[in-house]
Amino acid sequence: MSGPTSRLLSLLSLLQTARTWSGSELAERLEVTQRTVRRDIDRLRELGYPIEADLGVHGGYRLVAGTSMPPLLLEDDEAVAVALGLRTIAVLGLPELEDAGVRALTKLGQSLPPRLRHRVRTLAASTTTWRSPTGSAADPEVLTVLAAAAANRERVRMDYETRDGRHGPRHVEPRHLVSAHRRWYLVAFDLDRDDWRTFRVDRILEPRATGARARHDLPAPDVSAHLEQGEQALGTTYRADVTLHLPVATARERLRDHLGDGTLAPDGEHTRWRSTEDTPEWLAMRLLLLDCGFTVHGPPALRERLDAIHERTRR
């Protein structure tokens, strides 16, 4: 062993495997005496690790569940697996886990050595999620950069794609990431426009923390109040009322991953679809991907969006 700290970490790594270790086994692995093992076990207990000891011929030491979550030591392959799982949570936007998942991914990403970060990126590039329930996929790398900048109150330079497809540089002070309507948004102060803005994260490219300190505070007690006051709305949402020129069974099959709290009902030979609440852009996209004829009964914003798409494709 190179020193007490290194030995303590090695001991913790052994105990975090799902088995009971005898004192002699630990002493042999660590190349120390059993007395030193007992002393190191006591030090780990003082640090909050719940370690039980069983006496007798078949006794030994094992790490058990405690009342709080102590720090974990992960092997390289375990760290990569956890990082990939957290990336999946971030992309899927699971309501119960999305915020915690991004925070955990940010912390883990800052701790991973470059060789493991490269492994995570390589494996992530080789996998995909089919029929994701999210409206658009946010890049986990982008999410972690923005989350870290918001936590550190640090300014960011990035490239942003506007709704009409134009790209341009932006200089912002990230404040908070918000998940809404199957998308991630960044609430930030736009230094070039001298005002607060909400950016869709899936349209943010190559964010780079500058190291400069963010200096603007939200004009509200918290992010929720800021958004609720309408100062930076995430976009007006609607429920589509559409007759799909499909039988109900076929419509249900094509919409099964996107029906949400929407409803399907027979409408003669066709199907009346009252959708889950979402933006006109997403509703229009969902309709076009159904690959069928349809009649839009409302809202007007959906008709306007479809007309704009038709005009653009006609040109």
Score class of each variant (00 low, 15 high):
Glu161Leu: 15
His181Trp: 13
Arg197Asn: 09
Trp184Pro: 02
Arg163Ala: 14
His171Ile: 00
His167Arg: 15
Asp190Thr: 08
Met158Trp: 08
Arg166Pro: 05
Gly165Leu: 02
Phe199Ser: 05
Ala180Gly: 02
Asp195Ala: 15
Phe199Trp: 12
Arg197Leu: 11
Arg183Cys: 11
Asp194Pro: 03
His176Pro: 00
Asp159Thr: 15
Arg170Ala: 10
Pro174Ile: 00
Thr162Asn: 14
Ser179Thr: 11
Asp194Tyr: 09
Glu161Asn: 05
Arg170His: 11
Arg163Lys: 05
Gly168Val: 12
Leu186Lys: 07
Pro169Cys: 07
Glu161Phe: 12
Arg166Cys: 11
Val187Arg: 02
Leu177Tyr: 11
Asp192Glu: 06
Thr162Tyr: 12
Asp192Trp: 02
Trp196Ile: 08
His171Trp: 09
Phe199Thr: 05
Arg170Asn: 07
Pro174Ala: 00
Arg183Ile: 03
Arg170Tyr: 08
Asp159Met: 15
His171Phe: 13
Arg166Leu: 14
Arg193Glu: 09
Asp195Tyr: 02
Phe189Ala: 01
His181Thr: 14
Ser179His: 15
Tyr185Phe: 13
Arg200Ile: 02
Ala180Tyr: 11
Val178Pro: 03
Leu191Trp: 04
Arg182Pro: 00
Asp164Tyr: 02
Ala180Val: 01
Asp195Thr: 12
Arg200Glu: 01
His176Ser: 06
Gly165Gln: 03
Asp159Asn: 14
Thr162Lys: 12
Gly165Asp: 00
Ala188Tyr: 03
Thr162Gln: 07
Val187Met: 04
Arg200Cys: 01
Tyr185His: 07
Arg182Thr: 09
Val201Gly: 04
Asp195Ile: 04
Tyr185Glu: 00
His181Gln: 13
Trp196Thr: 10
Arg183Asn: 08
Met158Gln: 13
Thr198Tyr: 05
Gly168Phe: 13
Leu191Gln: 09
Val187Glu: 01
Phe199Val: 07
Arg182Cys: 07
Asp159Glu: 15
Glu161Val: 15
Gly165Phe: 04
Trp196His: 10
Asp195Gln: 13
Ser179Gly: 11
Arg197Pro: 10
Arg175Leu: 08
Val172Ile: 15
Arg175Ile: 03
Asp192Cys: 00
Phe199Pro: 04
Ala180Lys: 06
Trp196Arg: 06
Asp194Met: 12
Pro169Lys: 06
Leu177His: 10
His176Glu: 09
Ala180Phe: 08
Val178Arg: 07
Thr162Met: 08
Arg200Asp: 00
Pro169Met: 09
Thr198His: 12
Arg197Gly: 09
Ala180Ile: 00
Ser179Val: 13
Glu173Pro: 10
Asp159Gln: 15
Tyr185Trp: 03
Arg193Thr: 00
Asp159Trp: 15
